[in-house]
Design a protein around this nucleic acid. Structure first.
Length: 577
RNA sequence: GCGCUCGUAGCUCAGUCGGAUAGAGCGUCGGUCUACGAAACCGAAGGUCGCAGGUUCGAAUCCUGCCGGGCGCACCA
């Protein structure tokens, strides 16, 4: 079933040969491009990796693997091979391999690179990201997680997972009460009532606009309540604060949707924390999903009462200390909501849960993992917590602190307006999520024309231009969908480009498995560079029509791969720039 | 103090489940448009891969210790 014209298949066939020689499967063998072209087209380290198990010298092993492979699976495509260095097996592939590989890419069209996950690895997966309390605008930090999460979703779905994208709305608890009080205070001010925003409330100016809107909709409905409580927003009656905060939440969520849509980050499901407290059943004074979770934890004997609070024994599952679920005041903690929420996600039929959190939440990982494991099905591997590092905001080299409550933030809308969606997305997903990211807005604007995204997009536009030329001046050389490409001599630059293209499915697989979309970013830069190199050396509209047809096919495959890869990162592929 | 994480070229970063002479972009210097897009290409300069040990045929990659930056260590979220 392995197809040696596909890089993954070629690798598999080499591993089979190695396994046959050694008598045991080799783990961790890689197929790479050698550092210098004269060393060969591809290089396999199977003999080096397998030497220890086989208890034989690597070079001797490599020779035997090479012979087995070249006489078996590789006989059609192996021109010759060399054993090099400590035991690398360097392959020189025949022109037939290059033609066959390109042919397969064209045959698959837009599907090329997709469905690469083995069936056994595919899951119904829920990816939750951005999730933020709806108390103010989304800022550039959120943009990073939005870009990362969205790219991970696109990659995972393309690779073969069944992906649901979810946004968890933290609209319950202390922060939301502060938000309600702050908004009510701004509303009061608009009505001429003296009521400052609470010191630990949300000071941002965006609340002024919301307050105006609120006043426009409800008029003076809350005037009496506001006068009664003034000047202390903390004395506002709960029903007023609730009404205001839920109204405000809905407005903020509308803004979220608009901003995220503009950033090309769609969500399938929006779940409100507050809805977890609604529903049938009751346990320890809580209903809905939260009540269900509490009942289940009691059934497992995980809860105890102490100092007037209800605690969960997370220490039994690796946490530093036990955690409070129900406070002395009788209120739930955020942690309790979160347990109920994750339990519910499993109930909804997901086999694998991924949460993407900012580094400022990493202290929360151990307890979440512990709680999740404590509940059936007691499977820690079903929940994957990905910690993304933060965005460092700089202003002319100086570090700048953002605070949502202070209202001192650079929003996603600001960023998109400044440099555009494509440049923003490409930049934000260009580095590993494990590294902190410096962002200087001023510098980003100044340098946006140098953003590497244009390098990749330029390659795409250039190909489109070439293809327009070919269709106009030599339409008969455009490869026909059903026909095979002609056999022609293949230049080194063409080989390099085909090799780069043939890596694409492996990059999709690797980026998906490692949750590392930035690998696609890096790859696209390399692919574009190979194309520009090809373009310099090889004329597509050649004297020989067969050569033109082959090269046009190469352009088509490159154009498709660039477009697919860019789309996986949420970036557009323009026909002209 | 404890935990997580990062430390690679002047700057921003790839490469990190061990592999050949450690890469890219930006910046600097020099060269390429009378044939398909110069937003491109070619070349040069630029490195104790934070430091010190260890593991082995082989370490930027794994282990230990130290140094430095970021982030956490709530009955906030």
């Amino acid at each position: 079933m392995t197809d040696v014209y596909d890089l993954a298949g070629l690798k598999a066939s080499l591993e089979e040969a190695a396994a046959a020689v050694i008598g045991a499967p080799v783990a961790g063998a890689e197929l790479s491009v050698p550092p210098r072209p004269e060393l060969g087209d591809l290089s396999a380290n199977a003999a080096l990796v397998g030497a220890r198990v086989a208890q034989r010298p690597p070079r001797e092993l490599a020779a035997e693997i090479a012979r087995t492979w070249a006489e078996g699976a590789g006989c059609e495509v192996c021109e010759r091979y060399e054993i090099a260095g400590p035991g690398f097996l360097n392959l020189f592939l025949s022109p037939a391999w290059y033609g066959g590989a390109l042919q397969r890419m064209l045959d698959r069209g837009a599907a090329y690179g997709g469905d690469v996950l083995p069936a056994a690895e595919r899951r119904r997966v829920n990816i939750e990201f951005v999730s933020v309390n709806p108390t103010g605008p989304l800022h550039v930090g959120h943009a990073r997680y939005a870009s990362y999460g969205d790219a991970l979703c696109r990659l995972s779905a393309f690779a073969g997972h069944d992906v649901t994208r979810e946004f968890y709305v933290n609209d319950w608890g202390t922060q939301m009460v502060k938000f309600g009080q702050s908004l009510a205070a701004r509303y009061a001010q608009r009505l001429g009532v003296e009521m400052p925003v609470p010191a630990d409330g949300y000071q941002g100016e965006y609340l002024l606009d919301l307050a105006d809107q609120l006043r426009g909709e409800v008029g003076e409905r809350y005037l009496d309540a506001v006068r009664e409580a003034a000047p202390d927003a903390g004395r506002l009656p709960a029903d007023v604060v609730d009404a205001v905060r839920y109204w405000g939440r809905d407005r903020v969520l509308d803004q979220f949707r608009g901003t995220l849509e503009q950033l090309r980050v769609p969500f399938d499901v929006w779940t409100s924390e507050s809805t977890l407290y609604d529903g049938p059943g009751e346990h320890r004074g809580f209903r809905g999903e939260v009540g269900k979770a509490l009942a289940q934890m009691d059934a497992e004997g995980l809860l105890y009462d102490e100092e007037g609070a209800v605690w969960l024994r997370t220490t039994q599952y690796g946490d530093d200390k036990d955690r409070v679920l129900i406070r002395q005041t009788g209120e739930s903690t955020y942690f309790l909501s979160d347990i109920a929420y994750h339990r519910d996600k499993l109930d909804r039929g997901f086999e694998h849960l991924i949460d993407i959190w900012g580094a400022d939440h990493h202290g929360y990982v151990a307890r979440m993992k512990a709680a999740f494991t404590a509940l059936p099905p007691h499977d820690p591997d079903a929940l994957e917590l990905i910690i993304g590092q933060l965005v460092n905001l700089l202003e002319s080299g100086e570090q700048k602190r953002m605070s949502k409550r202070r209202g001192d933030i650079v929003t996603i809308d600001d960023l998109v307006e400044a440099i555009g969606v494509d440049a923003a997305r490409f930049f934000l997903v260009g580095r590993s999520h494990d590294s902190t990211l410096d962002l200087d807005i001023g510098l980003a604007v100044e340098e946006s024309s140098k953003n590497p995204v244009y390098y990749v997009q330029y390659a795409h536009a250039r190909i489109c231009s070439i293809l327009r030329n070919v269709r106009e001046r030599a339409p008969e050389t455009v490869p026909q969908p059903a026909a095979s490409l002609p056999e022609v001599p293949i230049e080194a630059a063409e080989k390099a480009l085909i090799k780069a293209l043939s890596r694409f499915p492996l990059v999709v697989l690797d980026a998906t498995r490692r949750r590392a979309p930035h690998r696609m970013h890096t790859y696209l830069g390399e692919l574009a560079a190979e194309f520009h190199g090809f373009y310099r050396v090889c004329r597509v509209l050649a004297d020989d029509p067969a050569v033109s047809t082959f090269r046009t096919g190469l352009c088509l495959a490159t154009r498709q791969t660039l477009a697919t890869g860019l789309d996986l990162l949420g970036v557009g592929a323009p026909d002209a720039m």
